[in-house]
Protein backbone atom coordinates (compact mmCIF):
# COMPACT_ATOMS: atom_id res chain seq x y z
CA UNK A 1 0.00 0.00 0.00
CA UNK A 2 2.71 2.46 -0.95
CA UNK A 3 1.38 5.90 -1.61
CA UNK A 4 4.41 8.15 -1.34
CA UNK A 5 6.28 8.14 -4.62
CA UNK A 6 9.70 9.76 -4.58
CA UNK A 7 10.06 12.83 -6.75
CA UNK A 8 11.28 12.01 -10.22
CA UNK A 9 15.04 12.42 -10.29
CA UNK A 10 15.09 14.93 -13.11
CA UNK A 11 12.63 17.23 -11.36
CA UNK A 12 14.34 17.16 -8.04
CA UNK A 13 17.69 17.82 -9.64
CA UNK A 14 16.40 20.75 -11.64
CA UNK A 15 14.82 22.14 -8.49
CA UNK A 16 18.02 21.81 -6.59
CA UNK A 17 20.20 23.33 -9.29
CA UNK A 18 17.78 26.15 -9.95
CA UNK A 19 19.37 29.56 -9.41
CA UNK A 20 17.08 31.68 -7.23
CA UNK A 21 16.98 34.71 -9.61
CA UNK A 22 15.29 32.90 -12.50
CA UNK A 23 11.54 33.39 -12.00
CA UNK A 24 10.42 31.32 -15.01
CA UNK A 25 12.04 28.19 -13.66
CA UNK A 26 10.74 28.95 -10.24
CA UNK A 27 7.18 29.20 -11.47
CA UNK A 28 7.56 25.97 -13.38
CA UNK A 29 8.96 24.35 -10.27
CA UNK A 30 6.00 25.48 -8.20
CA UNK A 31 3.58 24.09 -10.73
CA UNK A 32 5.30 20.74 -10.63
CA UNK A 33 5.33 20.72 -6.83
CA UNK A 34 1.63 21.53 -6.73
CA UNK A 35 0.93 18.73 -9.16
CA UNK A 36 2.85 16.33 -6.97
CA UNK A 37 0.97 17.44 -3.91
CA UNK A 38 -2.41 17.12 -5.58
CA UNK A 39 -1.52 13.66 -6.80
CA UNK A 40 -0.41 12.62 -3.39
CA UNK A 41 -3.53 13.99 -1.78
CA UNK A 42 -5.56 12.02 -4.28
CA UNK A 43 -3.64 8.86 -3.48
CA UNK A 44 -4.08 9.45 0.21
CA UNK A 45 -7.79 9.86 -0.34
CA UNK A 46 -7.97 6.60 -2.28
CA UNK A 47 -5.97 4.87 0.39
CA UNK A 48 -8.15 6.19 3.15
CA UNK A 49 -11.28 5.09 1.33
CA UNK A 50 -9.84 1.62 0.88
CA UNK A 51 -8.78 1.38 4.46
CA UNK A 52 -12.18 2.58 5.61
CA UNK A 53 -13.84 0.05 3.40
CA UNK A 54 -11.64 -2.63 4.81
CA UNK A 55 -12.30 -1.55 8.36
CA UNK A 56 -16.06 -1.38 7.84
CA UNK A 57 -16.12 -4.71 6.12
CA UNK A 58 -14.21 -6.41 8.89
CA UNK A 59 -15.61 -4.32 11.70
CA UNK A 60 -17.18 -7.18 13.57
CA UNK A 61 -14.16 -9.34 13.21
CA UNK A 62 -11.86 -6.60 14.44
CA UNK A 63 -14.03 -6.09 17.46
CA UNK A 64 -14.57 -9.71 18.29
CA UNK A 65 -11.42 -11.53 17.40
CA UNK A 66 -8.43 -10.53 19.51
CA UNK A 67 -5.98 -12.13 17.11
CA UNK A 68 -7.44 -10.34 14.12
CA UNK A 69 -7.24 -7.14 16.12
CA UNK A 70 -3.53 -7.64 16.67
CA UNK A 71 -2.96 -8.10 12.96
CA UNK A 72 -5.04 -5.07 12.12
CA UNK A 73 -3.05 -3.05 14.62
CA UNK A 74 0.18 -4.26 13.09
CA UNK A 75 -1.00 -3.34 9.60
CA UNK A 76 -1.92 0.13 10.75
CA UNK A 77 1.38 0.53 12.55
CA UNK A 78 3.39 -0.41 9.48
CA UNK A 79 1.87 2.46 7.52
CA UNK A 80 2.02 4.93 10.35
CA UNK A 81 -1.66 5.08 11.29
CA UNK A 82 -2.62 4.87 14.94
CA UNK A 83 -6.27 3.96 15.27
CA UNK A 84 -6.09 4.74 18.96
CA UNK A 85 -4.66 8.20 18.54
CA UNK A 86 -7.96 10.02 18.73
CA UNK A 87 -11.37 9.09 19.96
CA UNK A 88 -12.89 11.47 17.46
CA UNK A 89 -11.13 10.16 14.42
CA UNK A 90 -12.86 8.09 11.82
CA UNK A 91 -11.46 4.99 13.46
CA UNK A 92 -13.46 5.26 16.56
CA UNK A 93 -16.51 6.29 14.58
CA UNK A 94 -16.00 3.38 12.24
CA UNK A 95 -15.01 0.77 14.73
CA UNK A 96 -15.36 2.05 18.20
CA UNK A 97 -11.81 0.79 18.48
CA UNK A 98 -10.58 3.87 20.31
CA UNK A 99 -13.39 3.61 22.81
CA UNK A 100 -12.64 -0.05 23.30
CA UNK A 101 -9.13 0.70 24.52
CA UNK A 102 -10.18 3.70 26.57
CA UNK A 103 -12.80 1.66 28.34
CA UNK A 104 -10.34 -1.11 28.90
CA UNK A 105 -7.81 1.37 30.28
CA UNK A 106 -10.35 2.73 32.74
CA UNK A 107 -11.19 -0.81 33.88
CA UNK A 108 -7.50 -1.56 34.27
CA UNK A 109 -7.04 1.48 36.48
CA UNK A 110 -10.00 0.34 38.58
CA UNK A 111 -8.63 -3.15 39.08
CA UNK A 112 -5.15 -1.85 39.89
CA UNK A 113 -6.54 0.56 42.46
CA UNK A 114 -8.77 -2.05 44.02
CA UNK A 115 -5.94 -4.52 44.46
CA UNK A 116 -3.11 -2.15 45.36
CA UNK A 117 -3.79 -2.37 49.09
CA UNK A 118 -2.85 -6.00 48.82
CA UNK A 119 -0.10 -6.13 46.24
CA UNK A 120 1.50 -2.74 46.77
CA UNK A 121 0.52 -1.65 43.27
CA UNK A 122 2.17 -4.45 41.39
CA UNK A 123 -0.05 -6.96 39.62
CA UNK A 124 0.56 -9.94 37.38
CA UNK A 125 -0.82 -9.45 33.89
CA UNK A 126 -2.69 -12.76 33.99
CA UNK A 127 -4.30 -11.85 37.30
CA UNK A 128 -5.29 -8.47 35.87
CA UNK A 129 -6.80 -10.23 32.87
CA UNK A 130 -8.81 -12.72 34.89
CA UNK A 131 -10.08 -9.97 37.18
CA UNK A 132 -11.13 -7.91 34.18
CA UNK A 133 -12.90 -10.87 32.69
CA UNK A 134 -14.86 -11.29 35.90
CA UNK A 135 -15.84 -7.64 36.05
CA UNK A 136 -16.78 -7.35 32.39
CA UNK A 137 -20.05 -8.66 31.09
CA UNK A 138 -19.85 -12.09 29.63
CA UNK A 139 -21.23 -11.14 26.24
CA UNK A 140 -18.69 -8.40 25.53
CA UNK A 141 -15.60 -8.83 23.45
CA UNK A 142 -12.89 -11.21 24.42
CA UNK A 143 -9.71 -9.44 25.46
CA UNK A 144 -6.18 -10.56 24.73
CA UNK A 145 -2.88 -9.90 26.44
CA UNK A 146 -2.02 -7.69 23.47
CA UNK A 147 -5.12 -5.57 24.09
CA UNK A 148 -4.15 -5.14 27.71
CA UNK A 149 -0.60 -4.10 26.92
CA UNK A 150 -1.88 -1.63 24.33
CA UNK A 151 -4.37 -0.10 26.73
CA UNK A 152 -1.73 0.15 29.46
CA UNK A 153 0.70 1.85 27.10
CA UNK A 154 -2.05 4.36 26.33
CA UNK A 155 -2.21 5.11 30.04
CA UNK A 156 1.36 6.33 29.86
CA UNK A 157 0.12 9.54 28.30
CA UNK A 158 -1.28 10.35 31.72
CA UNK A 159 2.20 10.40 33.23
CA UNK A 160 4.55 7.87 34.70
CA UNK A 161 1.87 6.10 36.67
CA UNK A 162 1.79 2.85 34.76
CA UNK A 163 4.79 0.74 33.92
CA UNK A 164 5.07 -2.69 32.32
CA UNK A 165 7.81 -4.96 33.62
CA UNK A 166 8.62 -8.11 31.66
CA UNK A 167 9.33 -10.86 34.22
CA UNK A 168 10.40 -14.07 32.58
CA UNK A 169 7.59 -15.09 30.25
CA UNK A 170 4.94 -12.89 31.77
CA UNK A 171 4.50 -9.25 32.73
CA UNK A 172 3.96 -7.33 35.92
CA UNK A 173 2.03 -4.09 35.80
CA UNK A 174 3.09 -1.40 38.20
CA UNK A 175 0.42 1.16 38.97
CA UNK A 176 2.22 3.23 41.57
CA UNK A 177 5.14 5.57 41.05
CA UNK A 178 8.47 4.23 42.23
CA UNK A 179 11.42 3.07 40.23
CA UNK A 180 11.93 -0.67 39.83
CA UNK A 181 15.44 -1.45 38.68
CA UNK A 182 16.77 -4.53 36.97
CA UNK A 183 17.77 -5.89 40.37
CA UNK A 184 14.20 -5.68 41.63
CA UNK A 185 12.70 -7.35 38.61
CA UNK A 186 15.36 -10.04 38.88
CA UNK A 187 14.34 -10.63 42.48
CA UNK A 188 10.70 -10.93 41.41
CA UNK A 189 11.72 -13.39 38.75
CA UNK A 190 13.52 -15.47 41.36
CA UNK A 191 10.42 -15.45 43.53
CA UNK A 192 8.08 -16.57 40.77
CA UNK A 193 8.06 -20.22 41.72
CA UNK A 194 8.04 -20.24 45.50
CA UNK A 195 6.67 -16.69 46.02
CA UNK A 196 9.54 -15.79 48.35
CA UNK A 197 13.29 -15.26 48.34
CA UNK A 198 15.98 -15.08 50.98
CA UNK A 199 19.18 -13.06 51.06
CA UNK A 200 21.40 -16.14 50.94
CA UNK A 201 19.19 -17.64 48.23
CA UNK A 202 19.84 -14.60 46.04
CA UNK A 203 23.54 -14.68 46.84
CA UNK A 204 23.72 -18.35 45.86
CA UNK A 205 21.71 -18.33 42.66
CA UNK A 206 22.61 -14.91 41.29
CA UNK A 207 26.16 -14.69 42.63
CA UNK A 208 25.30 -11.30 44.06
CA UNK A 209 27.15 -9.59 46.88
CA UNK A 210 25.21 -9.90 50.09
CA UNK A 211 24.84 -6.10 50.30
CA UNK A 212 23.30 -5.97 46.86
CA UNK A 213 20.64 -8.51 47.79
CA UNK A 214 19.88 -6.74 51.06
CA UNK A 215 19.64 -3.37 49.34
CA UNK A 216 17.19 -4.65 46.72
CA UNK A 217 15.02 -6.41 49.31
CA UNK A 218 15.00 -3.50 51.74
CA UNK A 219 13.80 -1.24 48.94
CA UNK A 220 10.98 -3.59 48.03
CA UNK A 221 10.04 -3.85 51.67
CA UNK A 222 9.96 -0.06 51.92
CA UNK A 223 7.76 0.17 48.84
CA UNK A 224 5.29 -2.28 50.33
CA UNK A 225 5.93 -4.88 47.63
CA UNK A 226 7.46 -7.43 49.98
CA UNK A 227 6.39 -8.85 53.34
CA UNK A 228 8.76 -10.55 55.78
CA UNK A 229 8.24 -13.93 57.39
CA UNK A 230 10.33 -14.46 60.52
CA UNK A 231 8.93 -17.86 61.38
CA UNK A 232 10.62 -19.67 58.55
CA UNK A 233 13.36 -22.11 59.28
CA UNK A 234 16.85 -20.74 58.83
CA UNK A 235 16.54 -17.13 57.81
CA UNK A 236 14.05 -14.37 57.12
CA UNK A 237 11.97 -14.89 53.98
CA UNK A 238 10.75 -12.09 51.77
CA UNK A 239 7.32 -12.80 50.30
CA UNK A 240 5.56 -11.06 47.43
CA UNK A 241 1.76 -10.83 47.62
CA UNK A 242 1.74 -9.90 43.94
CA UNK A 243 2.94 -13.37 43.04
CA UNK A 244 1.00 -15.24 45.71
CA UNK A 245 -1.69 -17.34 43.99
CA UNK A 246 -4.35 -17.26 46.67
CA UNK A 247 -4.63 -13.55 46.04
CA UNK A 248 -7.08 -14.31 43.23
CA UNK A 249 -10.12 -13.97 45.45
CA UNK A 250 -11.14 -10.35 45.94
Amino acid sequence: MTFMYPLPVSVSLSLLCMPPHRPATKIKGNVIAEDQLAQMAKQMETFKVNLEEFATKHKDQIKKDPEFRVQFQEMCASIGVDPLASSKGFWSEMLGVGDFYYELAVKIVEVCMATSHRNGGLIRLDELKSRLEVSRHKNTQEISIDDLLRAIRKLKTLGNGFTIHPIGKTFLIQSVPGELTMDHTTVLQQAQKSYYVTVSGLVDTLKWEKERAIKALEYMLKEGLAWVDDQAEGERQYWFPTLFPDAQTP
Binding site: W227, D229, W239, T249
Partner: peptide, 12 residues
Amino acid sequence: WQYNFPPFFTIQ
Protein backbone atom coordinates in the same frame (compact mmCIF):
# COMPACT_ATOMS: atom_id res chain seq x y z
CA TRP B 1 -6.14 -15.10 51.29
CA GLN B 2 -3.83 -13.66 53.93
CA TYR B 3 -4.48 -16.63 56.20
CA ASN B 4 -2.38 -18.82 53.92
CA PHE B 5 0.27 -16.15 53.38
CA PRO B 6 3.06 -16.96 55.86
CA PRO B 7 4.21 -13.36 56.53
CA PHE B 8 0.71 -12.55 57.76
CA PHE B 9 1.77 -14.16 61.05
CA THR B 10 4.81 -11.90 61.45
CA ILE B 11 4.10 -8.28 62.40
CA GLN B 12 5.45 -6.29 59.45
